[in-house]
Design a binder for these strands. Sequence first.
RNA 1: GUGGGUGUAGCUCAGCUGGCAGAGCGCCAGGUUGUGGUCCUGGAUGUCGUGGGUUCAAGUCCCAUCACUCACCCCA
Length: 420
Amino acid sequence: MTFQAPKGTFDWLPPRSERVLAVREALVAPVRHAGYGYIETPTFEDTALFVRGVGESTDVVSKEMYTFTDKGGRSITLRPEGTAPVMRAVLQHGLHNGQLPVKLWYSGSQFRYERAQKGRYRHFSQVGAEAVGAEDPALDAELILLAHDGFTALGLTGVRLLLNTLGCKECRPAYRAALQDFLRALDLDEATRERIEINPLRVLDDKRPEVQAQLAGAPLVVDHLCGACKSYHEEVRSLLTASGIAYTDDPRLVRGLDYYTRTTFEFVHDGLGAQSAVGGGGRYDGLSEMIGGPALPSVGWALGVDRTILAMEAEGLLERDEARGRVQVYGVALGEQARRRMFQIVAELRRTGLDADMSFGGKGVKGAMKGADRSGARYALILGDRDIEAGAVQVKDLTTADQTAVPLAEVVEFLKGKLS
RNA sequence: GUGGGUGUAGCUCAGCUGGCAGAGCGCCAGGUUGUGGUCCUGGAUGUCGUGGGUUCAAGUCCCAUCACUCACCCCA
């Protein structure tokens, strides 16, 4: 009996796994250049942080959390999202007592107990950015712009931006009531009827055609915004337009976490299957207060690393790098004495900054040469007893098959000259 | 939680109305006793997901179960 990865999880394997690192780095590069500082929080938190922050009425909290009791009797939850933990850390350490906004970025695993499907897993990787403690449409626009730049830097052309506003605590209650009145009159299943009472905005997001058909005349947030929300949203839109960022107004765009207010947005890609969001976020002016802090209007986003890679694969952006070699030089040693010598040469090559590997496992020349070929190395070093006697190592250019003897003492310098 | 599809070699899969478990790729070895990528030859690897049932006979039919997968729900 062998083991397999737990249900709903998967492994990234070479060579594709290299992309995980590269994508993560590319997605956060723009925020790192925009004054955002790195924050690392624990993988797990007190369960209550998510219950109060993300909201009891959300599916994430009500049925998707990995919650357990630790040996000290505390209720612990593996983080299902990154924003509440970041806000918790800001409040705990008083980061908001300095100049605002506090700009932070993070990268890490998230956990949600869901039924897996393409692009949706129980363990997934996100990068995120948050700007805490400032109410300024330019901050919303900045974050959207930075996420857009990350996707663009990866060569993605099929990422679309959907934009909406959810109003604030002044105007949302009236809208919510109007929407509930409308929804209650519809013919819906029981689960959806319950949702009307708990979180009516989410009903707008329902994908089922029989539901969508009934939603045609539903009241929209845009028509119920207060003056402040309206002008705020207009400013975000005009800043985006002025920056050349294309977006689609989607008055039905709703997010699944309770803390969102005003600006909400989602980056979607059509090559992913049903889980089309590669990133999403928005403003969460009330979160700090929900978890016991002062008023700290904030905005942020999270981008899915795994989904971004799926999007890149859908656009055919990854194939060309697949064959890229792992190392530049590969050692083939024949016999014990040569093996020891090769071990030293390879170590020295690495110290000078070259990527080098050698044959392990006692293979014959043929097998070792095969290993050299597969390593993607430009040069193979062949060393046997008679080479050691002659004081030279055979350096073979694997692209041309030319082979020359180079004195042992000079081989590192020789390769350095050829390769760097 | 609900529904559909699929489980056969390391990988991708073929296997008809039940009748000796296969191919391609990969892996290993040899051709070439010190030379890869091409070519030729040979080789290894399977409780046919698991358990039960029908049958002279089950990879194939039936039931159950597990896993994977896609979709709903939800979201990155």
